[in-house]
Write a protein that binds this DNA or RNA. Structure first.
Lengths: 336, 336
DNA sequence: CTGAAAGCGCTTACAG
DNA sequence: CTGAAAGCGCTTACAG
């Protein structure tokens, strides 16, 4: 590829003049500018990004650490972030940790920590002005205990490290909405199929649901609740247990669990929606393809991304690195 | 952020020595190396990627132009590409065109062309050694008619421009598999709900299906075929037309169309799989959540990515820019 | 309006 | 084993 210097030689001008022409400076005659631009066209010259950015040191670049690009939540969060930053004329760089195939995910926090360290090193060496960490699933992160020279925002997860700002979902109000919706349908004996019990979301949803029932003077029966893995199979198994107890509705902590309940119902010749009212959580695309479509809470993924970007933008503007609290965004009830 | 020169000053050595220490050169005493590494630890020094790459000019970097990161096909294709290149020690840079929100997609090829031009300019200015274009949906691309200084590979689409290599799916053999599977179930009166009739896949699937029927001496009835938009709603509408004609099976050109057929059946109190045998295409995640799960052809997305990366790698090794033909990878039958 | 020169943060022969 | 010096491809005062 031709360089700016060669271009200058061909035009018979200095590199400074070419640079001015390219960058639209006003101190240049129309004729030489034209000559240069035409030569650029002819030669297919492209400025070298590395060289340029080495020289001018304000880059407006945000690094995104994506734990897993293939996670169903990631693309929408990224879209929210990019949409914001594109409007604000920031550039974004993606680093995909690929935890599904790279690490013994879940099993080894040490691997994850070193994966994050690698990501941070790479992004910092690319001179990003800030880092947004997009989690594969929402949990409490603890990978940023050492101080970085740029601000960090946690997206779709919590953290209490160094008062890092984070953006996650508001489980309390979301669960309240869902619980009241279920109650409004006249159900009083309601099962709850919860996610893993060491999970913050499962805990919050469990507690909020319990509270709503109490507020409505409905007996909360511990026996109608199970904590299981977040999968379709686990949902099916859980349904077997819980349905024996004569419930008329079941609140599932995600859509896959709900799909598992559907599986159980189909297998036992029962009709979801009729013989049992089932609700999910996430508004994963499958929730509208189950039959009948399932009522669920829509994760505000775009908004999580947008808000994360906005927090970063504010941090950068104020030159602060910490001090902003976390944000929790309510989900939207999708009744089906 | 501290620079290499400052680091050198603090250690009382030259920048050359620090550079050697960092890059693990052997010509350096253990003691000074230790001293330097420790200082790096203390100061949190990170090498400046821009400066380094400006100096050494072999970067092993591949640029990925992603038309739409949110497309359901994109993450798996990207994963296939990244997995390959990570093993080969290439770096990858993502450029997300975001066609869903940026462009009047489908309606204006001029916008798309300029979007691709921007992407190419940015990646070239970042000195990539090659570009892989990952399409949002498979079609015939024509954005690369001007010659680029690096090789280009088209992923999940076709092209006949400049003999650019491409990787797409093999509709012929995939359709043959599916058709024979449907026939093996004893169906002879089979409808086909096709994608849009200007679409290459729709055309190939239509033709292949027709051919298989003829080979089996089964009358091919043009009236049982409709060409519609690739959506769930269109599938439902199409079902209304086609089912009146007394078919026992329907081959849909994607899973959303098949879901639309399910919608129609449910609404008319018919049972998919029993009253009508329905098959889809893509193995989109929803296909296993429809009830009953739908038989479909799995898009070889990981393999498309892997193969695209391999083609690029070969191109780079051979220093050729063109001359490799396209590859078409068969889909896998997922019987449900 | 144009050009000579310095410098961004590194690496790489080369000399010692 | 270590350092002085040149240079990667740009931009930016500054002088003219």
């Amino acid at each position: 590829m031709i360089t700016l210097k060669e271009l200058a030689d061909r035009c018979g001008v200095s590199t400074a003049t070419v640079s001015n022409a390219i960058n639209g400076k006003s101190n240049i005659s129309e004729s030489t500018k034209m000559r240069i631009l035409q030569m650029i066209e002819e030669t297919g010259y492209k400025p070298n990004f590395m060289a340029r950015n080495l020289r001018v040191n304000s880059k407006r670049t945000i690094g995104l650490i994506i734990e897993e690009l293939s996670a169903f939540t990631s693309p929408a969060i990224i879209e929210g972030i990019m949409r914001y930053f594109e409007a604000q004329k920031y550039e974004t760089i993606l680093y995909n940790m690929r935890v599904y195939s790279n690490l013994n995910w879940m099993d080894d926090e040490k691997f994850l920590q070193s994966g994050v360290n690698n990501a941070v090193d790479e992004l910092l060496s690319k001179q990003v002005n800030g880092i947004i960490h997009v989690a594969e699933h929402s949990r409490k992160l603890k990978y940023y205990n050492h101080i970085l020279p740029v601000p960090v925002v946690i997206s779709y997860a919590y953290t209490d490290e160094r008062k890092l700002p984070y953006v996650s979902i508001d489980d309390e109000t979301s669960t309240v909405k869902m619980a009241e919706y279920i109650l409004s349908k006249g159900h009083t004996k309601i099962a709850m199929i919860c996610g893993l019990n060491d999970n913050l979301h499962a805990q919050k949803r469990y507690n909020s649901f319990k509270r709503v029932l109490k507020e409505h003077n409905i007996h909360f029966d511990e026996d109608l609740c199970v904590f299981v893995n977040w999968t379709r199979d686990a949902g099916k198994e859980a349904a077997a247990k819980v349905l024996k107890k004569g419930v008329t509705a079941v609140f599932c902590h995600n859509d896959f669990l709900a799909a598992g309940v559907y599986d159980y119902l189909y297998e036992h010749n029962m009709q979801p929606g009729k013989d049992l009212f089932v609700t999910g959580f996430d508004d994963h695309i499958v929730s509208s393809y189950l039959h009948p479509g399932i009522t669920t809470m829509k994760l505000p993924l775009l908004e999580i991304g947008r808000k994360s970007a906005e927090l970063m933008d504010n941090l950068l503007k104020s030159d602060a690195k910490y001090g902003i609290e976390g944000f929790e965004i309510p989900c939207e009830l999708i009744a089906r």
